[in-house]
Structure formats: C-alpha cells, structure tokens
C-alpha cells in the first residue's frame, strides 16, 4: 500500500483531469498548456508570503505541478494576495495586476481577503478583496499551510483546464465598478489611468 509522498502526489493529481467540460479541441489544447505551466508572481503582499518558500522549494515542491515563480508581472500568470491588504499595498497590487498579461488569475489566501479576517475592524485594511480585484480562488485558513495552497493551485488548474477561470474577462467587462471601489478607498484617482483603458485596444502584430 503506497503511502507518504507518492500517495500524496497521486491523490493530488488523481482527479486533475477528471473535470470534463464541453470546449472545442483548440480551446481544450490551449487551456491544457495554460493548466500545465503556471508562473506565480514573486510578490508577498501580506503575512501569507512566508508560506510561499516552503511551497516552491524542496518539501512541498510546487514545481512538480508546473508551478514556478516569476520575477516580473510581465512574465506572471497568477498573483497571490496573501493575507491582509492595507491601502498602500492595494495600490501596488492593482498596479501589478494591471501589468500582467492576460489570461491572469488571482489566488487569495487567508480569511483577511474574504471579510477582513482578524483585522475586521482595522481602519487601515480593506475588508473584501472581491470589490477591488476579481478573485479566482480563495484558500481560507489564517494562513493556509502549503498543502492547502497546493490544493488551491490544483483547483485553480482544474478550473483553468476547464476554461472556467475567466476572472480577467470579468475585470475588463465591469471595469468601472472595480475602479469606483478602488478610488473610494485609495483617495484620489488611481494612477495610472492609461493602464485601465489599455485593454480596450485591439492588439497589433
């Protein structure tokens, strides 16, 4: 009877591609590649950042699932908002999120992103990440351990594989809603505005 690491590997991967969904073969292939290789932006926003090293290094090794760190938002697919998010950090998260190239996903860790967590009454943190950024996957736990983060990643990969993770389209469609909330919290106009209307243009070569 296997146990230990191999079992864990099998169970995690076991039902990875069980999610059957009706999408054209081209989309299926495209999503299959997007599922197999995920670049996570190396940007620790809150206290969850301390969970990232063990997830990506030897013990929990996210790389075996094709998940790797990426230095700049240009190269990244997934941004992890790990934990409480003060106004100051929110401004940087929005700026980085808008610089990532589509399709991009947000992984929110901890309860602070859900409803403010233990800082529910703090004057300085936002209570509900949903209003400011479209979130694909929540991983609760007041800082989830690497296993649950990996679990979260697997779920995200399943959704990507099935083509259901389309938060970045949601961000583009109702952009005013997000921008209004952001400006309500961040005070004056969120710079740079041109980043937002960048999506409205058609690509070149």
């Amino acid at each position: 009877m296997e146990e230990g690491f191999l079992l864990e590997q099998k169970t995690l991967e076991g039902d990875l591609n069980s999610e059957t969904s009706h999408q054209s073969s081209v989309d299926f292939l495209m999503n299959w590649f997007r599922k197999r290789s995920i670049f996570v932006l190396a940007y620790g926003t809150g206290c969850g950042a301390i969970e990232m090293p063990p997830t990506f290094t030897s013990r929990y090794d996210a790389e075996r699932l094709g998940i790797r760190g990426a230095a700049t938002p240009r190269q990244a697919d997934v941004i992890i908002v790990s934990g409480y998010c003060s106004y100051k950090t929110l401004r940087r998260i929005i700026r980085t999120y808008e610089q990532m190239s589509n399709p991009k996903y947000v992984l929110a860790l901890g309860s602070c992103t859900v409803n403010g967590g233990m800082y529910w009454d703090s004057y300085n943190t936002i209570k509900k990440l949903e209003d400011y950024l479209p979130v694909d996957m929540y991983v609760n736990g007041c800082m989830p351990r690497p296993e649950s983060i990996l679990e979260g990643f697997i779920e995200l990969q399943k959704e990507i594989g099935a083509g259901k993770a389309s938060s970045w389209q949601k961000y583009e469609e109702n952009h005013e809603f997000y921008r209004k909330n952001q400006e309500a919290v961040l005070g004056e106009k969120v710079e740079p505005s041109y980043e937002a209307d960048w999506y409205l243009y058609e690509g070149g070569l």
């Binding site: 403010g116 209570k127 949903e130 961040l186 005070g187």
Partner: peptide
C-alpha cells in the same frame, strides 16, 4: 509614513473610533 492620502483624524488618538470608521467607509461581505 504608512497611511497614504489619510485625511481623517490621526488614528491612534482615542477619540477616533475604528469600528465606527470602518462601518462608515468600508463595506463588509
């Protein structure tokens, strides 16, 4: 230093009530 664009009363003064501020400015889920 850490509060950007903060226009309300300095937060650590005791007349500033955080909960009331939060309910007024932020929305809960």
């Amino acid at each position: 230093l850490s509060l950007e664009n903060w226009v309300h009363t300095p937060p650590l003064r005791r007349e500033f009530d955080t909960l009331e501020f939060v309910n007024e400015h932020l929305t809960f889920r």
